[in-house]
Each structure stands twice: as structure tokens, then as C-alpha cells.
Design a binder for these strands. Structure first.
Lengths: 132, 132
DNA sequence: ACTCAGCCTTACGTTAACGTAAAGGTAAAG
DNA sequence: CTTTACCTTTACGTTAACGTAAGGCTGAGT
């Protein structure tokens, strides 16, 4: 009875607020492999999840190629020690990038706080001027 | 006696580990305006700081155009209430993006933890197998 | 039977952010 | 005085990530 959720490309594009072209492009790059019904693509929950991951990766500045290799690593049965250590090295690498980004964000946030505070100060100054 | 620090384009590129081409490109885009001595560019501390900001912005996924407008806003004397409110709106916008990124990073970090843990588990499993 | 919305493929166009010669000026060292 | 190491400009090439037609199939509604 569990009718699994399905999506057309149009529905999916509205859901994530991207174009169908983008979704087809991700497929061209082997990031998605939707089922077909006749000529049309049909997306299931797992595809939706993948797409979500793609978009998150993009927001973090990863290229589609990088995202692809991450997917491949995640999908792979890591059997040999060599593979496992490659994987560990990669996660460490990504972790370093993310930590740098955290730092950057923190710094920028503080600066935004400053700018904002100064703006608000000046605004109240202006208002006081108007009321005298 | 305070001889202000100066840099050639080559020195600066080594400092930040980027190409001279990039630095010249940022100048083309009006993100840097170095002094000239004869034909050569001379960079002072303020230019170095700017370059640092550019690179940080890039790491956070900002386009050079965006970075430029941020600089312009920062440099501008915000006098009118309208300008101030535009600025506040923009900082809010950026803040939203940064918060999203923070979220994304947190999520990804957790997943990296998972992957890493599983890798290490499997590695010890393999080692145990070898030792029996 | 026709129309229309929504899907499809193929293919050329576009933008950002540089890369990569090519050709030449300049200052210090040998 | 010439080599060497940097610097310069001009200009065409490149890659990623789509945008944008153009032309066509297909199922539901009238």
C-alpha cells in the first residue's frame, strides 16, 4: 500500500526552485539517474534526496565534479584498506575546507554586525535631527 | 621612519598563492587600484588587505561583482536614510546566506563524522582479520 | 479531431574567472 | 653590453554551469 512518491521534472524543478534544464544537466553529468516511463523522466524519493545534496554542495562552493566523486565514494563498497584510507584522506580534506569556511563566515558575520550597528546609529542620528 | 610595507605583484601573488594574472584581473574589475611606479604596480598594506578580503569572499562563493558592490557600500559615506536602509537590507540578505551556509556545513560535518567512523570501523575489522 | 500543456532531444550561445601565449620595457648583475 | 629576472600590455583560448531556442512526441480535455 505504500505508494512511493513520484515526481515529474516539472514538479521537482518547482520544488527546488531551479529549472528543468539544470536537472537534466545534472543527469548529463551522471549525478542523477531517473527512471523512465516512455520518454519521460520519473523521479523517486532517492532522486529527490540526491538533488537536495547536489544543491547543498553547490551552496558550499563544490563543483559538480566534486559532488560526483563524493557520491561515488559514498556509494562505493569500500573494501580495501587503500580505499578506506583514500576516503579518510578526502573527508579530512573537506573538513579542512569547511573549517576555513566557518572561520570566514564568523569573521564576516562580525563585520556585518559592525556595519549594521553603525548604520542604525546613523539612522537614529538622522531621525533626531529631523525631530528638533 | 615608518617605512610602509610595499609589495610587487610577484611578491603578493606568492603571499596569497595565486597568479599575477588573477591580481591584474581583479584590478580590471576595479577591485584593486594599486599605485604605479613607472610601469610597475606597487601594492601597499591597504591593497593587501583588500586582496585578502577578495579571497575570503571567493571562498564563501561570492562573485567578484558582489564583492565589488560590498566594497563600494563599505567605502561609501552613507548619508541618506535611503542609503542606510539599502545597506541594512543588504547585510540582512548576506546574513541569511551565511546562516544557510552554516547550516549546510554543520550537516555536512556530521555526515563526514559518520563516514569517517564507519571507515575506521572497517579498517580495524580488516586488521583483525589479518591478525588471526 | 484538435488543441494544449508538459515532456523530450539536439545544439548553439553565454558568463565568470581566469589561463596562456606573444611581444616588449627595465633594472641589476656579471 | 648582454643576460636574467621581473614587470608590462594585448588578445585570444578555456572551463563550468547552465540559458535559450527550435522542432517534435504524447496524453488529457473539449
Amino acid at each position: 500500500m505504500s505508494q512511493e512518491q513520484q515526481y515529474s521534472i516539472g514538479e521537482l524543478s518547482k520544488l527546488f526552485n531551479i529549472t528543468a534544464r539544470s536537472i537534466r544537466f545534472y543527469e548529463e553529468q551522471d549525478l542523477l539517474v531517473p527512471e523512465r516511463k516512455g520518454q519521460s523522466r520519473i523521479y523517486h524519493l532517492k532522486d529527490k534526496v540526491r538533488l537536495k545534496l547536489i544543491l547543498r554542495g553547490k551552496r558550499l562552493g563544490f563543483s559538480l565534479a566534486e559532488i560526483k566523486t563524493l557520491f561515488e565514494l559514498y556509494d562505493t563498497n569500500l573494501t580495501s584498506a587503500a580505499q578506506l584510507e583514500t576516503m579518510l584522506a578526502l573527508t579530512e580534506q573537506k573538513r579542512a575546507v569547511l573549517n576555513q569556511q566557518l572561520n570566514d563566515i564568523q569573521t564576516l558575520m562580525n563585520e556585518l554586525d559592525d556595519v549594521e550597528a553603525r548604520c542604525k546609529d546613523e539612522l537614529t542620528e538622522l531621525q533626531r535631527g529631523n525631530n528638533l
